[in-house]
Amino acid sequence: MNQDLPPVGWSRDDMARLAAIDIADGSYVNLGIGIPELVAAHVPPSREVVFHTENGLIGVGPPPPAGFEDPELINAGKKPVTALPGAAYFHHADSFAMIRGGHLDVSVLGAMQVSEKGDLANWSTGEPDAIPAVGGAMDLVAGVKTVVVLTEHTTKSGEPKLLRRCTFPLTGRGVVRRVYTNLAVVELSPDGFAALALAPGLSLEEVRRWTGAPLSDARPEHVRNGE
């Protein structure tokens, strides 16, 4: 199959910056493994955002300098982190009480697929020989107040990840509020996907071409007219 590929659009750091700008001062936030981990570095300096990792730390700090890694101080991706002043450690049942009990404000997750109803698939391709591994994703989408997704707009081979219906096993139904991709910021409206912003130089038609479901235009009028 000789399929062409979507434009590059925003970098992963750009995507993380856009997601970070939408996180309010004083929020408690859980970052998923992968691109979502980049969000922590892009919180505007005027805001205080507290990061939670489900393996038992709230007040997660940046990675330690080389040589200062502690195998007993890691994040959910099992990478070394630091604990900021004001941090706290806790056991797993308390950690998921924070998650399921609605105490966290924002969950930033990666995705394999997102449907226009806000369904999320991010844990299994459902292939017979795949090793199913779910981790904490189903608890996060069930309990955190606002769930947003940070992901490339398509797979590596150019298949859309924003779809009418997910074909992979679901993580949760109707849980995603907003999606930050390399091509667009997309809101989950009652009518489906709605573009809030497009990566520089891209037209709505171009982004629609790489989207597997209808995409309405929710950009501010002055931006739309300037297209």
Partner: peptide, 28 residues
């Protein structure tokens, strides 16, 4: 799911035989 695993263990230790959770609803 990790939170369900933690809570099932917590319940086991706390004398609670079962509980209801929203995690994994609508999934396989």
């Amino acid at each position: 799911p990790q939170g369900t695993l933690a809570e099932r263990i917590r319940a086991g230790g706390a004398g609670i035989p079962a509980f209801y959770t929203p995690s994994a609803v609508g999934t396989i």
